[in-house]
């Protein structure tokens, strides 16, 4: 079964502690947004994320998903920022009331590459990190089990929920309910779909709560883990380094280094 975006591979990146990858992703994103140099986010993407993705042996999936998520944003950003940039400046081309300015394009490029880093960094994390392992690592670092439960369960239960919505739709169609047509009919269709979905979810939640309690989920003592997530001193140092790097970019920007 596929869980979220996770792609299983034998790679050193996959074996890293999930917190290291999480720290890397967050640090790169902070750095990309903190530094106002136009070329900077693109450099981060090419120098940090691309090699990391290659080392993790997931380049094809990464490329496909990046295009899928960033592509539409890219188009929107260039249309809005590139064509309707309000500032003064050299005009490169003009079409009726629309003028294309160099500054607008530069600003659009920066916004677009920042989004590219944002999405790329988290895709890198999700493609190479099993959500279960990530949650394990977070709980071991003190994340309350309830929060971990909500995140992990959502990942697995949402597909099941979607499947149930399909079942309900079919069941009502099998009772002669037509789903196409005008707005009024579409609204009339909602109750027979949402009613069973919501009530079914309620019953399920009740039963699931009992099943969880039967496995001592309510215990308050210290928890242990079947699969402790391995960590190394080198990785701990690397995480501090990444945090320091991210902090440095913010401080440098605040001090006006890039102005």
């Amino acid at each position: 079964m596929t869980v979220g975006f996770y792609q299983h591979r034998e790679s050193s990146v996959h074996r890293l502690n999930p917190l290291t990858k999480l720290t890397l992703a967050v640090a790169v994103v902070i750095a990309a947004f903190a530094v106002p140099l136009t070329w900077w986010p693109a450099a981060l993407f090419l120098v940090v994320l691309v090699p990391a993705v290659l080392a993790a042996r997931v380049p094809a999936r990464f490329a496909a998903l990046t295009v899928k998520f960033v592509g539409p944003l890219l188009v929107a950003v260039f249309l809005v920022q590139g064509l309707f940039f309000p500032g003064e400046g050299a005009e490169l081309a003009r079409l009726g009331p629309i003028s294309v300015k160099a500054e607008g394009l530069a600003f659009a490029a920066q916004t677009a590459t920042r989004l590219l880093v944002l999405i790329g960094a988290f895709l890198f994390l999700l493609l190479t990190t099993h959500p279960g392992v990530l949650m394990n690592a977070m709980v071991q670092r003190g994340l309350p089990p309830n929060i971990s439960y909500v995140v992990s369960a959502t990942l697995q239960i949402v597909p099941a929920f979607r499947e149930r919505a399909q079942h309900i739709l079919r069941a009502q169609q099998a009772r002669g309910m037509a789903t196409g047509g005008g707005l009024r009919r579409r609204i009339g269709v909602l109750l027979p779909l949402i009613g069973p979905l919501a009530l079914g979810a309620l019953t399920e939640v009740e039963e699931r709560a009992v099943a969880m309690e039967a496995r001592a989920f309510g215990a308050t003592g210290r928890r242990t883990s079947l699969m402790p997530v391995p960590d190394t001193t080198a990785q701990r140092l690397a995480r501090w380094g990444l945090a320091a790097f991210a902090a440095a970019t913010i401080v440098a920007n605040a001090l006006g280094v890039f102005a």
Partner: peptide, 16 residues
């Protein structure tokens, strides 16, 4: 719903 293999699912109560 929080465990991704049967082995981990079985251990859930013991972890708690």
């Amino acid at each position: 719903g929080v465990k991704f293999t049967v082995r981990e699912e079985l251990a859930f109560g013991l972890e708690n």
